[in-house]
Design a binder for these strands. Structure first.
Lengths: 150, 150
DNA sequence: TGCCATAAGTTTCATCATGAAACCAAAATC
DNA sequence: GATTTTGGTTTCATGATGAAACTTATGGCA
């Protein structure tokens, strides 16, 4: 990947988001973090990622404020990686990805992991609505661009 | 990127989704497709992506059923790339990414492109709720894994 | 009809990110 | 105190990526 062009300056919020977590492993790490993993070795084993790459990605995620590294034992050098509030705000992204996967990438009866509400054990819903509550889809919306600055 | 391990067989729907659209460019292409782009050169100019990579990504997206290639003119060889129904189901992913970006990656008054409802011109909402309508966050849910098969 | 510009790729080649494996230091365990 | 585990870093080979040149087909247009 030759020096990926940073999209930090892009006016599109999706692009900037991808700039931060759009790389292949980052979202998988975040997924595992949502699933309760905190330690280097947990991520490594779960993902089968190369150690150097994992180290690099964790560093980037911490830098971006998605994860915090806190000493696992007071005074120790080993870290626990935990989602920050910002990191937890990726929850909708994970849910959306999951629902897409469920809908299109599994055979009807194929076993899959499930995301359920702790309270009632039922799957959660994701709705995109207008201010008045109407459900909206891609054809009901427009993207208003930022006028090209000079 | 040495022969990325395919996650086709993973039991996690998010992982499979990332296997299909988790690569860096694919979601950017899909974003532009949601924005109405259809032609090779449009994507190329918009993204600044290398032509060979764009060609490869478009092929993969078509293969996965996210896009369809239809002849731009009857009998012609030039293609238009359009989102399939499956592709449009990525809408929530795009909205979730966008909202994350808006919330965390822009300065307060910084200009940004906006996604608005055609009908009322207002931004859309994204809600994750339990079956009974309660809003649920990451700490209200659990992931139930598929028992490790032997 | 013939000419030029553009669209849509493909090919070639250099480079950088990635993955594998070895290495290493600090903690934890025995 | 020795051994193992954890959490990395270093080294090196490979292959995905990007840039640019090349190719073919299409669209304009005079």
């Amino acid at each position: 990947m030759v020096a990926r062009k940073s999209l930090k300056g892009d006016h599109c919020p999706s692009a900037r988001a991808l700039d931060v977590i759009g790389d292949w492993w980052s979202l998988m790490i975040v997924r595992d973090a949502f699933d309760g993993m905190t330690r280097f070795s947990e991520f490594q084993k779960s993902l089968g990622i190369a150690r150097n790459i994992l180290a690099e990605r964790l560093r980037a995620l911490v830098e971006h404020g998605i994860l915090v590294a806190v000493p696992a034992t007071p005074g120790g050098t080993r870290q626990e990686y935990r989602l920050t509030a910002m990191g937890k705000d990726l929850f909708p992204v994970m849910v959306a990805l999951r629902q897409f996967g469920e809908r299109h990438l599994f055979a009807p009866q194929e076993p899959r992991s499930r995301l359920i509400d702790r309270a009632d054990g039922q799957p959660v819903r994701l709705d995109i609505t207008a201010q008045d509550g109407r459900a909206v889809g891609p054809d009901d919306t427009v993207i208003v661009k930022v006028p090209e600055a000079e």
